[in-house]
């Protein structure tokens, strides 16, 4: 049963991705990418990653979609017809995909409890989190306690990105062209 849920959600994600490639209306593309993130959040719940699922639903489906819509309002809504033939990109993509699929044949099968990734470090955290951190959620304990400094580094990255956005778009700039919505949607 669980296998069928898995197969259908991932199938829907593949269809959404194909629709994103095909469509040239950027608002539709952005909406589909929101749906794509929501489907990703659902598949994360199926695969037991609940913390990842609600972060993806809030950040991926929520904030990212809002950022994209804001950018569309300031730029344009229609993508121009591609001028080049897609033959070379298709060849590159197919070869890369084939090599990667060949690589998966050596990876431990989905759900294998004896996979190498499950052996050394993971059981340590599962056994000791209650003793060291005193909370039941292992993901939170690793994120905020065991690897607290890494999370601090993550905050620094977000802060840097925020400064970058302010420097690029801030209203303090003088003598540079003003950024305003353009009216020509028929690009």
């Amino acid at each position: 049963m669980e296998a069928w849920v898995d197969i259908s959600i991932l199938g829907l994600m593949a269809l959404t991705a194909i629709a994103i490639v095909m469509l040239r209306n950027l608002l539709a593309v952005v909406m589909l990418s929101g749906i794509y993130s929501l489907l990703a959040a659902s598949i994360f719940v199926v695969m037991d990653a609940v913390d990842v699922a609600f972060t993806e639903a809030a950040v991926g489906a929520g904030i990212s979609t809002m950022l994209f819509i804001g950018t569309l309002a300031l730029t344009t809504r229609i993508e121009k017809k591609p001028a080049h033939t897609p033959v070379l990109p298709l060849i590159v993509v197919i070869i890369t995909g084939a090599v990667l699929i060949f690589g998966t044949l050596d990876v431990a099968v989905y759900g294998d409890p004896l996979a190498p990734a499950m052996q050394d470090v993971a059981p340590y955290y599962l056994e000791n989190t209650k003793k060291h951190a005193g909370i039941p959620n292992v993901v939170t304990a690793v994120l905020a306690s065991y690897r607290g400094y890494d999370t601090l580094g993550e905050v620094v990255v977000i802060f840097t990105a925020g400064i970058g956005v302010i420097l690029l778009l801030g209203s303090w700039r003088r003598g540079l062209p003003k950024i305003a919505p353009h009216k020509d949607d028929k690009a």
Binding site: V52, G60, L67, A117, L126, V142, L143, I158, A161, L169
Partner: peptide, 24 residues
């Protein structure tokens, strides 16, 4: 396994930060 979950949690948040910079 909780460790990939932690990694990806960080990656999602950093991902939206880079997206914001790209859109700017």
């Amino acid at each position: 396994n909780p460790l990939p979950h932690v990694l990806i949690l960080t990656a999602i948040v950093v991902g939206v930060a880079t997206t914001a910079l790209g859109l700017a």
